[in-house]
Design a protein around this nucleic acid. Structure first.
Lengths: 209, 209, 209, 209
DNA sequence: GATGAATGAGTCTTCATTCAT
DNA sequence: GATGAATGAAGACTCATTCAT
């Protein structure tokens, strides 16, 4: 099988497709989908721009592919976390760590997801918004379960709190990305994680004073 | 001829300029700056598109004008709040109320500010980023002062907490805008304000458990 | 009215539109619709190619406009002829003269109509074919009426004969156009008209030998 | 190994070439040469599009091949007919029958010949037009000979009449193809042949009334 | 021979911007 | 000031053709 031309070409083709997605993620993060030319993506991927059209019908479809393939992975992690029998505190700790970690490793992907998917009117218009919002569900469940076992205060609106949690994550990560919240060494990130965890836990758990 | 032609024209001109800004805010909110054509703005403003160029050098300058005029008002409010001798709790209450109120009244403006100014790589590239970040300062000062008078816990990183506060505001308001956090009557908004206030206050004030 | 800018501009705009149609007719005749670039049309019309898109959504729509505006005139003539109380012979004489005359004066238009409209699979696919075939009706009526008053032989299939008449016209005119049937002076055309008239009249009228 | 590889390959290669020509004829008939992509031809032929270039230098050359191979057969038939000692009437009868028959069996080929060869400015530009017009010669000779033996009237311009004959054939066959002249059973075709024969014979033979 | 990945010239089309009226 | 016709740079997309496998 490793010697059949077809298999070899298919593998090469798949690699090219992957390269395009990686390159597009980088450029989309930097300039936005609208501001990105297909030629930019191709240049970044080190291929002729015409080849992009062998793999994707148009520029928009690349974003759709990024979403389809990466968002699913992201949601899968969240679902796994929501399904693991851990305390609310531990789940939140892992969640925050995951975000910070992911951002540090794949900041472009996170940027694209935030700017071009989560917040893009156009993307949400032309796609199934529920496919995006499924990422909110596991977090809402984690909060709801925390409320049931007493780690979260009784009257808290789990859905609203989900937006709070995600909003915190998004803005802090944005601060990292644009450099207005400069962090250089790992300890700083760890420190942020602690502070964020404390704020979110206290915000959701303590009885109102 | 009680009014001088010049005065009349100036007033009319100013009104046209204002109309362009209002129209641009609407379409920018809907399609983004890149996705908006000057013709769209002109059509929305009910004028010929050529006229736009009598008031602004180019499309980008309209955004700059929106930023210059609206952001200043926004920052002015924040500064005023930061300068008023009120408790941390009361300031936070007013801040949250202001955001919800503003979003309900001028959601397009908030959308543009969030998407095209705060988060736009391009905008931040071509403008003085500090002009944007001045909005963070009064909030940071409010938190820092709260820490000084004991309403906020000692070890809290005021800057990080500022991002938390703004992130919460941004995401919740986004939920309102895209309809994933549906609210119909004023009481729901009031309830949200209460919950958000509680979460932020507890998150920042309580001693870690 | 002649001094109002709007009226003046509208007139200019209409003139530009007309120029585009004239230019397109020339280039379509020479290279076919597929083989014509919008830039060719614009160049021929002496305008920037972008201006073409102020008047037509795309290249195809120019052809549609040519068809809509010119075919109607053509059909109008045929209908008028079919409605005039003349003998079959006289009608056929005028018809043939009309074709030869029109071809001599507007050979490009005739070429486009024949090649890009009458015979184009694509055109017929995307348009209402009956709109094209209405040109056949008046001729069929002329033949049918000739049959009723005895100038055409009883058993003749009027519809089939219509195709014969039009086929003769088309091919002879094509011969003129490509130069394989070279004609230089008016007398030659007159002679052709006579011969064609004789062939068609005899072909349709005489009792089979 | 009863057959030598080389021979097998040659035979297979010839078959592939033939398949390409057949496939091209089909798609050219449907979309025109300009509107046809090499990939369409290859797909229709059931081969990879790269293979097309093993057999033809480019797309245009496929059309040239169709012309070279098929037109020659067509002209050969006409020449044979012109050389057979038959009456003018019988020759015309056979000619008309041949056209109708060929169209019924190979309508795509006829469509391509008519639209892309006979009428194409581009084809005629880049090829020897006389190679096309040789098809007119035998018909002209048939008419001229008919004139000599009295079956055709003395003053008739044989060349013009040739265009008449071919025009009739072309238009009627076009009517068949586009379905505006619907025929379902063989008898209808036979009836058409009779009527067309009568019209052409009478048109050319009878003394003008 | 066969495949289809890769290339990039050629076009279409959009739209910001200019400018004559 | 106001209009919208006109311009043309920019970029999306197509597809004929090449070529490594």
């Amino acid at each position: 099988m490793s010697t059949r031309p077809a298999a070899r070409q298919t593998r090469r083709s798949a690699r090219t497709r992957e390269r395009i997605i990686e390159a597009a993620t980088e450029v989309f993060a930097r300039r936005g989908v609208h501001g990105t030319r297909v030629a930019d993506i191709a240049e970044r991927a080190g291929i002729a721009y015409g080849l992009v059209y062998h793999h994707f019908r148009n520029k928009e479809e690349i974003l759709t592919a990024i979403f389809a393939e990466r968002w699913a992975q992201y949601v899968a992690y969240l679902e796994e976390l929501a399904g693991t029998p851990l305390s609310f505190r531990e789940r939140m700790r892992r969640l925050i760590h995951f975000w910070v970690q992911t951002y540090r490793q794949e900041s472009d992907l996170m940027t694209v997801m935030i700017n071009e998917i989560t917040r893009s009117y156009e993307f949400l218009e032309s796609h199934d918004i529920t496919a995006v919002l499924v990422a909110f569900d596991p977090i809402e469940r984690i909060i709801a379960e925390g409320r049931e076992n007493g780690e979260v205060r009784p009257g808290l609106d789990a859905k609203l709190a989900t937006y709070v949690v995600l909003g915190v994550a998004e803005m802090v990560l944005t601060g990292y990305v644009i450099g207005s919240l400069p962090r250089t060494d790992p300890e700083q990130y760890a420190h942020d994680e602690e502070q964020l965890l404390a704020m979110l836990l206290e915000g959701m758990s303590a009885a109102p004073s």
